[in-house]
Design a protein around this nucleic acid. Structure first.
Lengths: 189, 189
DNA sequence: GATCTCATTTGACAAATGTCACAAAACTAT
DNA sequence: ATAGTTTTGTGACATTTGTCAAATGAGATC
């Protein structure tokens, strides 16, 4: 992927960005192709990048009694990273590729700096945070107000393809139930 | 509360704000004193304000089978509002005073506008979103990884005074358990 | 195609939590 | 202080979900 392709792709993710800001961002971006299972951001390490998923899928997880528990999944066209990364702290979660994927890697520190001098960037970051907060609120709502069956229904209604692309073990932990319980939810249906 | 007191209080909440932005915000703020049980933001209505809690406490809740289920509590020195409000949509939750309270009411639309022209405001909003996202992530983590006993422990460790100021019924729904279960958790201790 | 490995399903049982009914305690107003 | 109201606690039982063990299924490798 050359610079002008990179630019095109970035425009897709950041439609209202100023030409000048785009150039600055391109300077601090790179294209990345990697295989299933690759760790993008390891737990406990400082990490300076956020990623745009061009192709593939990614999960974020914590370890609980040496078992992975998923916090989120992301597919194409999403922007991913961890809150700690953006704040400059060590990541609490591990971010890992679920499939062979293509990504664009952005230096978050450079972007954070642009925030001080470029309104289109600071608004862009504001929008990212807003979207992230809305995602978290929706998820919290589901965990607090829906039973496991309803949460499963909501997930496959929202992202039907998740079933083809993510293991039921990961989906179960994301929904907050054991593998076996998810299996029974699906059998009852 | 006169304008210069208002200004002082706002400075406490927004320590790095530019003098000029502060003046603009003061113009679109007002002081508010109201009694326990008052609805600050009703569910289903568009609302144009966020609030700073000078004194008192506030809860946010949804209705589930005509029972209130708490989403969050806030005490003094916190900034509150709903995501929908900030985005200009109807609020999904009801925000209500838990005690007689004193608040400062800020027009969020004016503040959102300042975001386009004033970096100290856009950074301020960015910080608010960040803090909110971190709060939500922590809460999500607790719901997904801790059992009800651990969540109760975490709450009273984080905010011990909550027990004196919020009913156990509200606390139970916030923790995602029934009143009776919370009662038993407390008895076992 | 046979074998191996890993993911998923199923059964049996235990543990946690919800629900309903009622008792005890704390708080209000007179 | 008393009566009434609201909040909190407790017991009995039903339901949901977790855990462990084993069986089945699907995909990869040779």
């Amino acid at each position: 992927m050359n610079n002008s392709e990179l630019e095109e792709t970035l425009k897709f993710y950041f439609p209202n960005i100023k030409e000048e800001s785009l150039n600055t961002i391109v300077k601090h971006s790179s294209y990345l192709k990697s295989t299933k299972g690759t760790t993008l951001i390891p737990e406990g390490k400082r990490h300076h990048y956020i990623y745009l998923i061009v192709k593939g899928s990614v999960k974020s997880y914590y370890l609980k009694k040496s078992k992975e528990v998923c916090v989120w999944f992301s597919l194409e066209n999403e922007i991913i990273g961890t809150t700690s990364t953006i704040q400059g702290n060590a990541s609490k979660e591990t971010i890992e590729l679920l499939e062979d994927s293509e990504l664009i890697k952005l230096n978050i520190e450079k972007i954070n700096k642009l925030t001080q001098t470029d309104f289109s960037i600071s608004n862009l970051l504001n929008n990212l945070w807003e979207k992230h907060a809305i995602f978290l609120e929706e998820r919290l709502y589901q965990l607090q107000f829906m039973n496991s069956y309803e949460r499963y229904e909501a997930l496959i209604k929202d992202t039907p393809e998740i079933l083809q692309r993510v293991s039921l073990t990961d989906i179960a932990s994301f929904l907050g139930v054991s593998r076996e319980t998810l299996s029974r939810i699906r059998a009852k249906k």
